[in-house]
Amino acid sequence: MEVVDPQQLGMFTEGELMSVGMDTFIHRIDSTEVIYQPRRKRAKLIGKYLMGDLLGEGSYGKVKEVLDSETLCRRAVKILKKKKLRRIPNGEANVKKEIQLLRRLRHKNVIQLVDVLYNEEKQKMYMVMEYCVCGMQEMLDSVPEKRFPVCQAHGYFCQLIDGLEYLHSQGIVHKDIKPGNLLLTTGGTLKISDLGVAEALHPFAADDTCRTSQGSPAFQPPEIANGLDTFSGFKVDIWSAGVTLYNITTGLYPFEGDNIYKLFENIGKGSYAIPGDCGPPLSDLLKGMLEYEPAKRFSIRQIRQHSWFRKKHPPAEAPVPIPPSPDTKDRWRSMTVVPYLEDLHGADEDEDLFDIEDDIIYTQDFTVPGQVPEEEASHNGQRRGLPKAVCMNGTEAAQLSTKSRAEGRAPNPARKACSASSKIRRLSACKQQ
C-alpha cells in the first residue's frame, strides 16, 4: 500500500481520502468484538498479612480480608486513616479506646483483636480482627420478611446475652447493641463488635452510672431520649438488646419516626405494640426488656430465667442462610486472597510482582521504634555504632529488605517449588510478632 504524507491529507475531501486508502487503516468495530484482558491483581503485604478484597466500608474506614502468612488464618483488617478520623467527632479517641478494650477481652461471643499495625509515614492504622463471614443486618436484609425464624432468632439472642453478660462482668457498657454490630462466623457463632462508643466503668465505681451516649437513635432507651444527665449503663444495653430481639423476630421496630426528633419523642413516651403472632412468652420477655422505668427493666439474670429464653424451640421454618457475597455473588464466600496468593505462588519472584506497604510497620504502639547501633568497621576489626531503624520486634528492616532482594536475584530452581506461605513470609520485609 502506498504511504501517504499526513501533511497532504488536509487537502483532500472525505471521498478523496477514502480513495487514497484511509479506509485501510481506520476501522470501526462493535464493542462486543473487544476482548478485555482482566487487570492483574497485584499482591500487597502489610507486615506478614497478605491483603485481599474489600469486605465493607463504614464511617471510620474500610475493612478488607487478609491472610496471615505465618498461621494461614483468615483475618479481617480495619484500615483507618488518621486524616479521616480527625474529621469525625471523637474519632481518634474512640478508636484508641476500642483498641484498649479489645486487647483485654477474651470471649467467644466478643470479636477478638489479633494485631494492631501502624504506618507512621502514611498515617494509617490497621486493626487486624478475627474473620466473620457476614453481619446479622446483612442476613436480615437478604430476606423479604426482614426477620429470622424463632428457632434461629433464639439461638442468636442467647449468644448475644452470653457476650453481653461477659462485657458487663468486665465493667464495660457497649451502648450500641444492634444487628449491624453483631457479626457471624461460618459456624454460626455470634460476635459482638464495634466497641468504639463503649465505656469502661471505673474499677471502684459504686454502680453503672453513665453520662454520655453515642449509640444508634432507634435503639436508645427513654432515659436517653428524654435527655437525662445520668442513667444506668447496663440497663441501656438491656433495652438495646430488647429492641434487637423485637427486630429479628418481627422484622419491625418498636419505635419509629420520620426524623430523629419524632423518633425520640415516640421513644420518650414509651408506647409501642407487640405483634400478636409473637406469642405470650416472647411478648412477656419483650415487655420486661423494654420496660420504661430502668429500675423495673429486666436484668440479665431475669432474662436467663425467663421461660422463652430457657425453652427449646424446634425449627418450624427453614433458617435464613448466609447470603452470597454482594460484589462477586459467591454463595460460598470464598477467600478473596486466592488470586493474590496464586500471583505470588505461580509467578517468578520479581520485585515488580508484589507490593510491600512499607519497609517498617510499627505494631502494638503509636510511637516510632527505637534505634540500635549499626556496626561500623574500624582499624582493629571492631565496629562502632551508628543508628539503624528496627521493627518493634527488633528485626532490622533494611537488612531483611536487602537480603530479600538478593535472594530474589539468585538463580535457584529449587526455590520455585516452595509453598505459597513460605514465599509470602520471604517477601515480607518486616516480620511481626
Score class of each variant (00 low, 15 high):
residue 63 V to R: 00
residue 240 S to C: 11
residue 299 S to T: 14
residue 222 P to G: 02
residue 72 L to T: 12
residue 68 D to A: 04
residue 353 L to C: 08
residue 385 G to A: 12
residue 401 S to A: 13
residue 76 A to F: 00
residue 251 G to R: 02
residue 126 Y to S: 03
residue 337 V to F: 02
residue 246 Y to A: 06
residue 48 K to Q: 11
residue 262 K to E: 10
residue 387 P to Q: 11
residue 238 I to M: 04
residue 19 S to G: 15
residue 193 S to Y: 00
residue 88 I to L: 09
residue 217 P to E: 02
residue 131 Y to G: 04
residue 183 L to D: 01
residue 409 R to P: 14
residue 336 T to V: 12
residue 176 D to M: 00
residue 397 A to C: 06
residue 49 Y to M: 08
residue 205 A to D: 10
residue 318 A to I: 12
residue 360 I to K: 10
residue 380 N to R: 14
residue 65 E to W: 10
residue 336 T to R: 13
residue 36 Y to D: 09
residue 366 F to C: 07
residue 375 E to V: 09
residue 374 E to A: 05
residue 173 V to R: 02
residue 122 K to E: 05
residue 240 S to P: 00
residue 397 A to R: 12
residue 30 D to G: 13
residue 345 H to I: 12
residue 400 L to V: 11
residue 336 T to E: 15
residue 186 T to W: 04
residue 109 N to S: 02
residue 98 E to K: 07
residue 320 V to P: 14
residue 125 M to L: 06
residue 123 Q to L: 03
residue 72 L to K: 06
residue 197 V to W: 09
residue 46 I to P: 02
residue 378 S to D: 13
residue 32 T to Y: 03
residue 32 T to W: 13
residue 380 N to P: 14
residue 371 Q to L: 12
residue 19 S to W: 11
residue 34 V to D: 03
residue 95 V to Y: 13
residue 423 K to G: 14
residue 168 H to V: 02
residue 356 I to V: 12
residue 224 I to W: 10
residue 330 D to H: 05
residue 345 H to Y: 07
residue 357 E to M: 13
residue 44 K to W: 10
residue 184 L to I: 05
residue 222 P to V: 04
residue 254 P to C: 04
residue 392 M to F: 08
residue 94 N to Q: 08
residue 327 D to W: 14
residue 262 K to V: 09
residue 321 P to N: 06
residue 144 P to N: 13
residue 55 L to D: 10
residue 375 E to A: 07
residue 75 R to T: 04
residue 46 I to G: 04
residue 164 L to I: 08
residue 67 L to D: 03
residue 163 G to A: 06
residue 81 K to V: 05
residue 199 E to K: 08
residue 212 T to H: 14
residue 86 R to V: 11
residue 410 A to T: 04
residue 311 K to S: 05
residue 125 M to H: 04
residue 89 P to A: 07
residue 277 D to T: 14
residue 291 E to W: 10
residue 133 V to R: 02
residue 179 P to S: 03
residue 392 M to G: 12
residue 240 S to N: 07
residue 97 K to Q: 03
residue 57 E to P: 15
residue 315 P to C: 08
residue 117 L to W: 09
residue 397 A to H: 15
residue 164 L to T: 04
residue 371 Q to P: 10
residue 118 Y to A: 03
residue 249 T to S: 09
residue 128 V to G: 01
residue 368 V to I: 13
residue 46 I to D: 01
residue 121 E to W: 01
residue 23 D to H: 09
residue 94 N to E: 04
residue 70 E to Q: 03
residue 279 G to E: 02
residue 82 K to W: 10
residue 261 Y to H: 04
residue 411 P to N: 13
residue 401 S to M: 12
residue 52 G to M: 00
residue 255 F to I: 10
residue 375 E to N: 12
residue 378 S to N: 14
residue 42 R to T: 04
residue 57 E to W: 04
residue 311 K to P: 06
residue 40 R to C: 11
residue 62 K to I: 10
residue 96 K to Y: 09
residue 302 Q to V: 08
residue 136 M to R: 00
residue 219 F to C: 02
residue 36 Y to T: 06
residue 138 E to N: 01
residue 390 V to Y: 11
residue 275 P to R: 07
residue 215 G to V: 04
residue 145 E to W: 11
residue 326 P to M: 12
residue 364 Q to H: 03
residue 92 E to A: 10
residue 121 E to A: 04
residue 229 D to P: 15
residue 368 V to H: 06
residue 205 A to E: 15
residue 259 N to T: 10
residue 92 E to L: 06
residue 389 A to S: 11
residue 376 E to W: 04
residue 209 T to E: 08
residue 179 P to Y: 01
residue 143 V to D: 12
residue 245 L to G: 00
residue 27 H to D: 08
residue 87 R to L: 08
residue 261 Y to G: 05
residue 291 E to N: 05
residue 279 G to Q: 10
residue 37 Q to D: 11
residue 397 A to L: 09
residue 94 N to R: 11
residue 341 L to I: 14
residue 339 P to D: 13
residue 248 I to S: 04
residue 4 V to R: 10
residue 337 V to T: 15
residue 416 K to R: 13
residue 373 P to I: 10
residue 332 W to S: 08
residue 50 L to C: 11
residue 106 R to P: 07
residue 394 G to W: 09
residue 409 R to A: 12
residue 306 H to R: 03
residue 143 V to R: 09
residue 75 R to G: 14
residue 409 R to C: 09
residue 41 K to E: 11
residue 104 R to G: 02
residue 404 S to L: 12
residue 77 V to G: 01
residue 335 M to I: 08
residue 7 Q to P: 04
residue 422 S to T: 03
residue 154 H to A: 12
residue 429 A to I: 15
residue 399 Q to F: 09
residue 311 K to H: 02
residue 33 E to L: 06
residue 68 D to R: 06
residue 315 P to I: 08
residue 241 A to G: 04
residue 339 P to V: 03
residue 334 S to W: 03
residue 109 N to G: 02
residue 147 R to S: 04
residue 183 L to R: 01
residue 45 L to D: 10
residue 130 E to W: 00
residue 311 K to G: 10
residue 361 I to W: 15
residue 229 D to V: 02
residue 105 L to P: 03
residue 387 P to L: 06
residue 303 I to Y: 00
residue 66 V to Y: 07
residue 331 R to H: 00
residue 287 K to T: 09
residue 178 K to I: 02
residue 423 K to F: 06
residue 203 P to A: 05
residue 266 N to P: 07
residue 161 I to P: 05
residue 356 I to M: 08
residue 202 H to N: 01
residue 80 L to H: 04
residue 255 F to N: 01
residue 70 E to C: 11
residue 123 Q to Y: 06
residue 35 I to L: 07
residue 339 P to L: 05
residue 426 R to T: 08
residue 82 K to R: 15
residue 431 K to F: 14
residue 278 C to W: 04
residue 255 F to T: 05
residue 282 L to S: 02
residue 15 G to E: 15
residue 358 D to R: 10
residue 197 V to L: 06
residue 344 L to D: 12
residue 382 Q to A: 11
residue 312 K to Q: 14
residue 90 N to D: 09
residue 219 F to S: 04
residue 46 I to W: 01
residue 367 T to S: 13
residue 206 A to G: 07
residue 105 L to Y: 10
residue 129 M to N: 03
residue 339 P to G: 03
residue 24 T to H: 15
residue 324 P to L: 11
residue 156 Y to A: 01
residue 279 G to L: 11
residue 36 Y to F: 02
residue 235 K to P: 15
residue 207 D to A: 09
residue 314 P to C: 13
residue 200 A to G: 02
residue 14 E to A: 05
residue 381 G to D: 14
residue 223 E to W: 01
residue 239 W to V: 00
residue 123 Q to S: 12
residue 315 P to W: 03
residue 185 T to D: 02
residue 330 D to G: 09
residue 88 I to D: 14
residue 79 I to E: 01
residue 227 G to V: 03
residue 179 P to M: 02
residue 96 K to G: 10
residue 13 T to G: 01
residue 357 E to T: 14
residue 180 G to Q: 15
residue 178 K to E: 00
residue 43 A to P: 11
residue 118 Y to I: 10
residue 53 D to E: 04
residue 357 E to G: 12
residue 279 G to S: 09
residue 270 G to L: 05
residue 39 R to M: 14
residue 273 A to G: 03
residue 172 I to S: 02
residue 157 F to M: 02
residue 403 K to W: 13
residue 345 H to T: 14
residue 280 P to G: 12
residue 256 E to W: 15
residue 38 P to S: 06
residue 127 M to W: 03
